[in-house]
């Protein structure tokens, strides 16, 4: 049998390997708390189920809420894009395409988080 993979000499591409799964698991567990907070605070405890502009501004300006909401933004973006990455990988991509998809999603993630931070800043300082 030619082309047999030899355990001792083959150096499989490490890629993100366990990091992608661990990041997905850790962000997922964190999101259960952070998304729970976000949903309850923005959709349940306020009059009419949603915050008006003044309420949203006051909410986001809170010194404890603000870092938690920023953490939520970062966590949810990472979790969502790692999930998309896993699904895209299952389209049967080449090694090169897998690297390009990872890079493209990283850019989308940075832009998304940047946009969220900018929007938060605009609301707080309005």
């Amino acid at each position: 049998m030619e082309n047999t993979v030899d355990t001792h000499t083959a150096r499989p591409r490490a890629g993100l390997s366990s990091l992608s799964w661990l990041a997905q698991a850790i962000s997922g567990v964190a999101l259960i708390v952070l998304a729970g907070l976000h949903m309850v605070a923005n959709h349940f405890v306020v009059e009419g189920g949603l915050r008006n502009f003044a309420d949203a501004q006051a909410y986001l300006s809170h010194p404890v809420i603000l870092p938690l909401e920023i953490l939520f933004l970062i966590g949810v973006t990472i979790h969502a894009l790692l999930g998309v990455r896993a699904i895209l990988f299952d389209l049967g991509l080449s090694d090169q395409a897998e690297v390009r998809v990872t890079q493209a999603l990283a850019v989308i993630g940075i832009v998304t988080i940047g946009y969220g931070l900018w929007l938060t800043w605009v609301v707080i300082t309005f």
Binding site: T7, H8, A10, P12, R13, A14, G15, L16, S17, S18, S20, W21, E98
Partner: peptide, 13 residues
């Protein structure tokens, strides 16, 4: 070596 193989990009993850 075996665990590294399992831990690679196309392994258990």
């Amino acid at each position: 070596a075996l665990l590294a193989l399992a831990d690679s990009e196309q392994g258990v993850w």
